[in-house]
Design a protein around this nucleic acid. Structure first.
Lengths: 205, 205
DNA sequence: CTACTAAACGGACCACGGTCCAGTTGTCTG
DNA sequence: CAGACAACTGGACCGTGGTCCGTTTAGTAG
């Protein structure tokens, strides 16, 4: 029974060691720079580890997977969007009618995709992003707005369903293979949201 | 049972060599069996090649990628769905109003996902499915129905956008992580389609 | 300062998807 | 039947994402 009786309940985790923190910053910096210079699909994890002056094991210990690293690199931009719909000006932020806020949310997300689609797509491998913190925040926001529009609707499922049309994989395809510009995509989102929950329900099939 | 096509279009390519045809069948058979026995994510391409009694090079020469092989294994089921909405009974087939056909299409697709989600997901890696023949057929079908509902709408983009909510990755997540049953998903699809193009348009933002 | 321990480290290692190419084989032509 | 050639073949090979584990080090207690 060499167990110390500290009961460190409050301090859930021990603080990050200083060398660990330093390496985390190095990795994020190197990844951001390389992704930006050559595009995410042309940078391997080995290269990032080398550029950061860190072993591969360290890289994966910190971030777990390539997709998670991409998400972490993007977290700054995601946080900005999040800030916008939580505390920003209407119509994105509080104050506007929920339907307008929902449209504004989609447009903001599409702007983010327009700027960082490849990187966001790198985080969408095998549905990994669906478990990420930024996705959860967006989904919650969308679900709350939907519930505000119609308290009786299945907001949870509808939120995921709507968010699927804002995925980076789809965006890249529509932009590159189908030559659809940002404005058309925003238009489609608007049509979708304008209609959702507006029609009288029919019997389930 | 892929019966020989009666009209060999223009015979643009030399006919498939008999040994090549035999190997193709062997590969498809082995892949179908292994995927079915252990789940697609637990079967490597090496194993499929071995089980088919074929070299790895042959496997990739035939099918190009793991995603394409998964799609090929599914082609029979996809063709069935396709047959259903082209020549089947209403409301899926011709005869019903376009909106009802669209709802029926989504439900049929969700039934297909319910039966083969893992396999379909294996074909959705890196947006590969968006270039596949079955996807193109479905997208065309959806776009035609949308145009029928509203000739002025942006049917192309809306079709891709709507189809995104029927992706296998999303289905698996909603089913496994969110515990959403088939009926709820069908309900969300219905809400989406009921509303689309019904609301009066507002000014683009 | 020394002793101790949990955490962090890094690079060898692994399995996988995918490529390459030298050799083989089916098919067509004369 | 022989000769020629395109198509097919298989397995060695490669780079990648991800894991493992023996070693090092930051932080702490005495």
């Amino acid at each position: 029974m060499s167990e110390p009786l500290e009961l460190p309940v409050i301090q859930s985790q021990r603080a990050e060691r200083t060398d660990a923190a330093r390496n985390r910053e190095r990795i994020l910096g190197a990844a951001r720079r390389l992704f930006d210079e050559r595009g995410p699909s042309c940078v391997s994890m080995d290269e990032i580890a080398d550029a950061a002056g860190v072993g591969k094991g360290t890289l994966f210990r910190r971030f777990g997977s390539r997709a998670a690293l991409a998400t972490a690199v993007l977290s700054e931009n995601e946080a900005e969007l999040q800030e916008g719909f939580i505390r920003g000006e209407p119509p994105l932020g509080p104050g506007a009618p929920p339907r307008e806020r929902l449209i504004a949310f989609g447009c903001a997300r599409l702007d983010l995709l327009d700027a960082h689609a490849e990187l966001i797509a790198a985080g969408e491998v095998a549905g990994a992003h669906l478990d990420s913190e930024p996705y959860a925040a967006s989904r919650l926001h969308v679900a709350l707005l939907l519930r505000e529009i119609d308290p009786a609707c299945d907001a949870e499922v509808l939120a995921d369903t709507l968010m699927a049309s804002l995925s980076a994989g789809l965006f890249l395809y529509q932009r590159d293979a189908r030559q659809a510009g940002l404005e058309r995509l925003k238009g489609a989102w608007q049509v979708l949201v304008e209609g959702a929950l507006k029609a009288e329900q029919v019997q389930p099939v």
